[in-house]
């Protein structure tokens, strides 16, 4: 909508509130009614833990840790069709600087020690997503002599994503589940 010369930028009826709110966005901004009355605009107040949780969940950096077939579906999720990047998820090769470890594939006994080492190298706060049925419970190799029946025998797991292999949408759902978990962590600590 082009502005005429001498036309006020802010319409008269909204000048008192100090905030221009389009009609569609009214229910989104209904939490900050207090700010409207006091005339301060564009400020969100939260408890600091919830703010930090919101920051953590919006920028989860997983360790590039594809073990087997699920790794191919995980890579497909990073690629433009299913795009993990819009969730803030960027794959990162170093365990010291990553937040989440997506264990994608079968965990073999020979690999158990490196997995434990990598988990210990990650800095807190850290989470683990077990992707696929091999990482959840051993999967199709459940009676094998050299497979660990699920990665939760070695490290604590937060979210399980079932499937063989899970679709990229399922992995996205798993990450969203983890984001909900992270957002609700401060409330859980307060016993709510």
């Amino acid at each position: 909508m082009a502005l005429e010369p001498n036309q006020p930028i802010m319409p008269e009826n909204q000048r008192k509130s100090g905030l221009v709110i389009p009609d569609e966005a009214k229910n989104v901004w209904s939490d900050i009614k207090d700010q409207r009355k006091s005339g301060i605009s564009g400020v969100v107040t939260l408890k600091s833990e919830e703010l930090f949780a919101m920051a953590r969940k919006s920028s989860l950096w997983p360790l590039t840790f594809g073990l087997a077939c699920c790794a191919i579906e995980m890579i497909s999720t990073y690629m433009p069709k299913h795009d993990f990047d819009r969730f803030g998820v960027v794959t990162w090769p170093s365990p010291r600087q990553s937040d989440v470890m997506i264990v994608a594939g079968t965990v073999v006994k020979k690999m158990a020690e490196p997995i434990k080492l990598l988990y210990e190298q990650m800095a807190a706060p850290k989470w683990v997503i077990a992707m696929g049925s091999c990482a959840t419970c051993g999967g199709p190799y459940v009676r094998s002599y050299s497979v660990v029946m699920g990665v939760d025998q070695i490290i604590p797991v937060d979210v399980y994503v079932p499937g063989c292999p899970p679709r990229p949408e399922a992995l996205l759902g798993g990450v969203m589940e983890l984001q909900d978990l992270i957002q609700n962590e401060p409330k859980k600590k307060r016993g709510l």
Binding site: K109, A112, R143, S146, V147
Partner: peptide, 25 residues
């Protein structure tokens, strides 16, 4: 292909697959 310290020879017919695996990391 097996880890150091693996006991037994899994390819042989005499090696039975366990019903319940016990490996606690």
């Amino acid at each position: 292909i097996l880890y150091d310290g693996f006991e037994g020879f899994p390819g042989r017919k005499s090696y039975e697959l366990a019903e319940q695996d016990t490996f606690y990391g």
